Computed example of a mutant assay.
Amino acid sequence: MMMGYGFSGPFGWLGMGFGMIIQLAFTALIIMAAIWMFKAVFRGGHSVERPIDAVEILKQRYAKGEISSEEYQRMRKELEF
């Protein structure tokens, strides 16, 4: 005769299944946290981004066609001193 509840608690197979789900969820959470930390360390995480300098913005505006070639040349000369 068995005494007590055994491995899966008072709920039998249901308790064991619930325990497995909790364990899998906990394991998935640990794996996701490890991946997030890996990305944060090797990609710089959410650190301060490198500021874009004025010449780079000017190049982007020229590439989009927002300014003409003459405007681009004039503004670039002014920025480079």
Results as ranks from 00 to 15, higher is better:
D53F: 07
A34I: 12
S8T: 07
I52W: 06
R76I: 00
I30W: 07
E70F: 10
G9S: 02
I57A: 11
F81S: 07
A40L: 05
A28L: 14
M32P: 04
S68W: 02
R50C: 02
H46N: 13
S68A: 02
I35Q: 09
Q60L: 11
F11C: 01
E70K: 10
Q73V: 06
I57S: 07
S68Q: 02
S69Q: 11
M16H: 09
P51R: 06
F26R: 07
M75G: 04
R74W: 13
V48N: 10
G15K: 11
A25L: 15
W36F: 06
L79D: 04
S68V: 02
V55C: 15
G4Y: 03
M20T: 09
K59Q: 10
S69E: 10
F11T: 02
K39Y: 09
I31M: 08
F42D: 07
F18S: 13
F38D: 02
D53N: 13
K59C: 11
E49F: 10
M32R: 15
M2W: 11
I67V: 10
Q60C: 04
D53C: 06
M3E: 05
I30C: 09
L29E: 02
I30K: 05
I30S: 09
E56M: 15
Q23V: 10
S8N: 06
Y72E: 00
L14I: 09
G65H: 01
R61T: 00
W13G: 02
I52A: 07
E56N: 13
I67P: 00
E56L: 14
M2P: 05
E49K: 15
A54I: 08
G6N: 09
Y62H: 15
S47T: 14
H46R: 12
A34W: 07
I22W: 12
W13P: 02
I67C: 03
F81L: 05
A40D: 08
L58M: 11
M75D: 12
L14W: 04
G6T: 06
H46T: 06
I57P: 00
L14S: 07
Q60W: 06
R50H: 05
G65Q: 00
W13C: 00
I57F: 11
I21C: 13
G4F: 05
A40N: 10
D53H: 08
M32Y: 14
Y5S: 11
W13I: 02
P51N: 01
L29S: 13
G15A: 12
A28V: 08
R76Q: 08
L24Y: 14
G65R: 01
F38L: 07
F42C: 11
M3P: 01
S69P: 02
F7G: 05
R61I: 00
G19K: 03
I31N: 01
I22V: 13
I22Y: 13
R61D: 04
A25Y: 14
S8H: 03
M2G: 09
Q60T: 01
